[in-house]
Computed example of a mutant assay.
Amino acid sequence: MTDVQDRATLSLPPLLFANMACTMAVVSFVSLAAPIARLLGLQPWQAGFAVTLGGILWMLLARLWGAMADRHGRRHTLLLGAGGVTLAYWSMCAVIILSLKLLPAALWAFLGIVITRGAVGAFYSAIPTAAQALIADHYSPDERAASLAALGAAGAVGMVAGPALAGLLAQSSLTLPLYVTALLPAVGFVTLWFSLPRHERPRRRVEASLSLVDPRLRRPMAVCLIVVTAIGAAQMTVGFFALDRLGLEPVAAARAASLALTLTGIAMILAQLLVRRLAWTAQQLIRAGGMVSAVGFTGAALSTTVPVLAISFFVSALGMGWLFPAFATLATNAVEPHEQGGAAGSIGVMQGLGIVIGPLAGTLLHGVGATVTYWVLAVLLAGTALWPVGQRSVSPLAD
């Protein structure tokens, strides 16, 4: 089967929709965690742990899902991931709904939510990992940046729309968002079942899996870790910045943080959609994205009003929206076809690690000074943009 025929068998919109639907369900819990925890008598750290666990399991299992995608196929892995998310999410919703009705001991409610929420994160990590490998199979190196940007934009839409939908529905009842969002991963699974290619190109089997420290992946993995850590740190500290730096009252600070984060989501979506029109190489996206993000975080560190803070977050998110498809493209173009799942899994490890350490690092730096987090992020992202590329640092196809 030729490359053109291979590409013709993959319809990208259903894959994007399924990714968005599953992401919406997974992240919608974030906006419900605090009120649910309060009603069940859980401590804030317990709610935080339930949310963070998904990132930890994403990090630990991404390479296993990538290896499975290489050995057993993209369709098999994507369906297993989406099906697992559906069943695990239904289990989590059942635990929460029953706990709200029966009000068991806080420990039992905590254990039930942690186990089921952890299972959601464990299965979800298969979806972006296998989807990235699938796109690498069906698109040439020159086309991958645009396609991976579309995948990233779909995920960004899910990350913005999920909590927004849950928050809107929660105004009527805390259980209503659970019933509605439980439909999303099921719809995603059905979409994948009917749309994914049933016949995949043969991949050469190898005994040794792709090493996590493979020199071809050092740059994309480092860029991925920096970007995801920056996002987590910025999201975690913006509310504290509004309190401590801008001197706002708690309610006003919450509104300022909501505005900044809403603009962040919009900017990341717009930036990744623009990649399809810009036709830049991965290296150009890193140069431009890193510098734009650095300018945005510099503005955030210097901001003294809510509008300036919100605009600065918008600018920084534009840059990071260009960095997302860049590191994914570098990774897919640096390895052989039979290693695509392993490369996607390695990137998934860095994403999970960034999700875990970003909020922690951000709050620790904020404890040193209200502006320190944003200055550090500006320096890191500027350094990423200016990072010299040696002859052996990436594959010749990576640019």
Score class of each variant (00 low, 15 high):
1 M>V: 10
8 A>C: 02
11 S>H: 13
11 S>T: 15
14 P>Q: 04
15 L>E: 05
17 F>I: 15
21 A>Y: 01
24 M>D: 01
24 M>R: 00
25 A>F: 13
29 F>K: 01
29 F>Y: 11
30 V>E: 03
30 V>T: 13
30 V>R: 07
31 S>M: 13
33 A>P: 08
45 W>Q: 11
45 W>I: 08
49 F>C: 08
49 F>K: 09
56 I>A: 15
57 L>R: 14
68 M>C: 00
78 L>Y: 09
80 L>M: 11
85 V>S: 01
85 V>D: 03
89 Y>T: 03
100 L>P: 06
101 K>Q: 15
102 L>R: 10
105 A>C: 11
106 A>G: 13
107 L>M: 13
108 W>I: 03
113 I>N: 02
114 V>F: 01
129 T>N: 10
137 D>A: 10
144 R>I: 10
145 A>P: 10
147 S>V: 03
148 L>W: 02
149 A>N: 05
150 A>L: 15
153 A>M: 14
156 A>P: 06
157 V>L: 14
163 P>N: 07
166 A>D: 00
167 G>P: 00
168 L>S: 09
170 A>S: 14
173 S>L: 03
174 L>F: 00
176 L>I: 06
194 F>Q: 15
195 S>V: 08
199 H>D: 13
200 E>Q: 14
202 P>R: 12
202 P>L: 09
216 R>I: 08
222 A>R: 11
224 C>N: 08
233 A>W: 07
238 V>P: 12
239 G>C: 02
246 L>V: 04
249 E>H: 04
251 V>F: 05
252 A>V: 00
262 T>K: 10
268 M>N: 14
269 I>E: 03
270 L>I: 06
271 A>T: 05
274 L>V: 04
276 R>P: 10
277 R>H: 13
278 L>Q: 14
287 R>Q: 15
287 R>H: 15
288 A>E: 11
292 V>Y: 12
294 A>Q: 08
295 V>C: 10
296 G>S: 03
296 G>T: 02
303 S>V: 01
311 I>Q: 13
312 S>M: 03
318 L>P: 00
320 M>I: 11
322 W>C: 05
328 A>T: 13
328 A>P: 09
329 T>S: 13
329 T>R: 04
333 N>E: 09
337 P>Q: 01
343 A>L: 11
344 A>V: 05
345 G>I: 02
349 V>S: 06
352 G>R: 06
355 I>S: 09
356 V>I: 04
361 A>G: 15
370 A>F: 01
371 T>R: 02
371 T>P: 00
371 T>W: 00
373 T>Q: 07
375 W>E: 12
388 P>N: 00
389 V>T: 12
391 Q>W: 04
393 S>L: 11
397 L>A: 14
399 D>V: 01
